[in-house]
Design a protein around this nucleic acid. Structure first.
Lengths: 342, 342
DNA sequence: GTGAAAGCGCTAACAG
DNA sequence: CTGTTAGCGCTTTCAC
């Protein structure tokens, strides 16, 4: 590939000076009183030569020495539930807004990688891109990669414990344990756990803790309903298949509210009342769970709370604060609603 | 404010060379075989002096000449529904991934502004930040500002027609008109429209078209149920107040599925059956609408479709393609479900 | 209305 | 193991 076109080449091409080219391309031709015809020519040449401005050059040259610019990033997998990313983004933006001053500016980027493929994200290991990042929705493969890597900037990992990093995660086992207890208290003795094909650490933990507690309480391991993805559709489809094998089902723990919502419809179609026939517990990443019919009991996950911890933690790291806890455990809230009240 | 600390100052402070400082701070001290003690000293000094690396400098110096780097941004208001932003982000990321090659790289940033305050976003007018942006969820104040501004890079505006820009928007009037017709066909004669306090152009259009069509069909202007925000909670609260004033209500058009979902619960509590007592139409920005009870009829908005048009359009502009349509109209799909079948 | 020259902060390349 | 030097691409300043 040829080296990129620069303002110098455009200037040479037209027989004018780079300064003139620059003025035009930065939209300053009016204040610099460049001839309209010249401006036209420059734009035309830029287009035909395929000029792509180098933002690093521009920023380097034109920033005020007193301004500090922080480039932050959220790294998440494509497969992650969008709401979590949205929450994180929203929170990060509002904290950024608070911290922005005349001479401190922030930019927030998002990098997405395919689950398990974090290692092939080129931006990650570059020291020349970000001042700090929050990484979330990783799979074990990703975590292993991170363990070996040593990133040259502050990193907060959400939802997973990775040695050597600052991590914010759900209190291990809490969601699964609580959910099993809620279902047991509602009288369920034939429980099932419903989850997607890909398991992040957080999801894995929820599933395992649920199974263990359910076994302890009911004397047998709960069934597994494995869904293709995390959408309601996937839950309905999985339940359709499952139905054939198991009629006695009386309690469902879905690792995501979206899955629970898909399950609702199929359960009703199967003639099961909620909660009388089957009780359902979800994990709260959804604003509408309270408005489902019947309202969905939710062990609130801890997305909100994790986000609320992770973002300020990143800023403390950026500020260079020392002696911060390597690990923050967040305890989810439980919202008991009709879907588990018998 | 003092000028930012540079590697030169750290070097001077420690009596060593800037190159050494640089190597350490970029995590290259191993390959450069810097003494561990020196590395320690450098890091310590960087911390105590409050060093913030200048990414523009780093990037400028260390990039390969053959690499073109594109910095893209999504600009959206804080108040926008998160799902739309999520969809847009996801789509943009996947197209970015397709276009990424050995010597073409992309970075995606998000800028959030408060609805109506786009003009005070400093990143917007800077020529030295982005190669292209997608702007969405603007209020009329923002649009007016944009009309006057002249941005020095490609811009796609989603959801609104603004003179001089490339715009992707819903076919005007379609959603509102369709919704009114669906409700009318379901036998509704006392309709209401439910919307949030802040009206983007898109929402405004939906509301107005609905009112007009409803009046045409029923002979009277439908009632308005104005909600604080766009969450289900807001819909329930607004309906609670509204209930006092109007018992005859038999059809609701909610400009957002979230609002419709909030309305469901309150309507049922008020003793209205859906669809027998009250039919409901939402606008489809939500994966669970099909899984509501009864499944929610949705005029699918056109978020998916808009996103699918806007992102490739941005890339065409970046490539310098000429003679592109200034305006792309997207026609929403209609999903008739139980909530309007009598 | 336009050009020449300097230099933003950093690191690659090379020399020791 | 570390220092010297040059220059990435751009824009600003000043000169004409």
């Amino acid at each position: 590939m040829k080296p990129a076109v620069t303002v110098y080449q455009i200037a040479a091409h037209l027989g004018i000076s780079p300064a003139t080219v620059s003025s035009v391309l930065a939209n300053r031709h009016v204040e610099r009183r460049i001839a309209t015809k010249t401006a036209e020519k420059v734009r035309e040449a830029a287009r035909s030569l395929g000029y792509v401005p180098n933002m690093a050059g521009r920023r380097l040259r034109s920033h005020r020495a007193a301004t500090r610019q922080f480039d932050l990033a959220i790294m998440t997998s494509f497969e992650a539930p969008l709401p979590l990313v949205g929450q994180l983004l929203h929170k990060l933006q509002s904290v950024v807004e608070q911290h922005t001053t005349k001479d401190t500016r922030y930019a927030v980027s998002i990098e997405m990688f395919h689950a398990g493929q974090l290692s092939s994200n080129p931006a990650l290991l570059d020291a020349n891109r970000y001042h700090g990042v929050i990484i979330t929705n990783t799979l074990p493969e990703d975590d292993q990669f991170l363990t070996q890597a040593s990133l040259p900037y502050p990193v907060v990992i959400m939802g997973r414990r990775v040695p050597g990093y600052y991590c914010v995660l759900e209190a291990p086992g809490f969601v699964g344990k609580q959910s099993a207890e809620i279902l047991y208290a509602a009288g369920c003795r034939n429980m099932a756990v419903m989850h997607g094909k890909l398991l992040t650490y957080t999801t894995f933990d929820r599933v395992e803790a649920f199974k263990q507690k359910a076994k302890e309480l009911c004397g047998k391991v709960p069934a597994t309903i494995s869904c293709e993805g995390l959408n309601p559709f996937d839950a309905a489809a999985a339940l359709q298949k499952f139905r054939l094998r198991r009629k006695s089902l009386d309690g469902v723990f879905a690792v995501t509210d979206s899955l629970a919502m898909g399950a609702y419809q199929k359960l009703k179609q199967m003639g099961k009342q909620i909660p009388e026939g089957v009780a359902v517990v979800g994990v709260g990443d959804n604003e509408v769970s309270e408005y489902f019919d019947p309202p969905l009991t939710t062990v609130a996950g801890a997305n909100d709370a994790m986000v609320a911890e992770a973002v300020p933690l990143l800023f403390r790291l950026l500020r260079g604060e020392q002696n911060l806890a390597r690990e923050v455990l967040v305890v989810p809230s439980v919202f008991e609603r009709k879907s588990t009240q018998r």
